[in-house]
């Protein structure tokens, strides 16, 4: 059932500009004057971990209570249905879909990410409370897949939000997705799934990437 070969662990992005030097002060630049009052403008900060024994215990709890954000961003989201229903039943692993990003801890990117969807993905991701994890499912989320030369699809999702686990396939079978989640659990238990802190540290870089593809940027820069 578990075919781990389908799973790819992403390499860290090799090079990026020295964002600390180039850091522009983002003050909800995309918003009009009036709208700025309605959005918070605090940057996300990297979170500190507690002492190790405690952190191990908490990581165990986190890995056994993975709440998925029920936001089907692409066709791969169809795989979530067999996962949560009788045949695969991820609830036995302590996982369940949550309708609001506030309460979810795993964001499953379900395939191709159009630029329009990216906007929503970014907002939803930023509204999730840390520690938060991203599982990118389908080839399209890894390299664009069949949308390789599309004008409207992003190719590497981890340039925009940090991804913990990729699951390849077009589409991956539920078993593969399940294997991906198992991998994620391992990573969490090992304390290696720190995408949230990565995002906070490289916030400006991520923002720059996001803004590069999203032309009509009318969102706040800090989607708390």
């Amino acid at each position: 059932m578990n075919d781990i070969n389908d799973t790819i662990i992403p390499e860290p992005v090799p090079e990026y500009p020295d964002w600390r030097k180039d850091a522009k002060t983002l003050t909800n630049a995309g918003l009009s004057e009036e709208e700025q009052d309605w959005f918070c403008d605090a940057r996300p900060q990297p979170a500190k971990k507690s002492w190790q024994v405690m952190e191990n215990f908490l990581n165990w709890a986190r890995s056994n209570s993975l709440w998925i954000l029920a936001f089907g961003t692409g066709c791969g989201a169809i795989e979530l249905r067999p996962l949560i229903t009788a045949r695969y039943d991820i609830s036995r692993l302590g996982m369940q879909p949550r309708p609001t990003p506030r309460q979810a801890s795993v964001f499953m990117i379900g395939g191709y990410v159009s630029i329009k969807t990216l906007k929503r993905i970014v907002r939803s991701y930023e509204q999730m409370q840390g520690p938060k994890f991203v599982v990118a499912v389908c080839s399209c989320a890894i390299n664009g897949g069949m949308y390789w030369d599309s004008y409207n699809t992003v190719k590497r999702i981890d340039e925009y939000i940090p991804v913990d686990v990729y699951v390849t396939g077009c589409m991956p079978r539920p078993e593969a997705v399940l294997a991906g989640f198992s991998k994620l659990k391992e990573l969490i238990k090992g304390g290696k799934a720190e995408g949230q802190n990565l995002y906070a540290e490289k916030f400006d870089w991520y923002k720059e990437n996001q803004k590069r593809v999203i032309k009509d940027w009318n969102m706040p820069d800090y989607n708390w």
């Binding site: 009052d37 309605w38 990003p101 993905i121 509204q127 969102m219 706040p220 989607n223």
Partner: peptide, 13 residues
């Protein structure tokens, strides 16, 4: 502490 529009709004604002 966040502002009034920092709410979950079906991934929109």
């Amino acid at each position: 502490k966040v502002k009034q529009f920092n709410i979950v709004f079906a991934a929109e604002r």
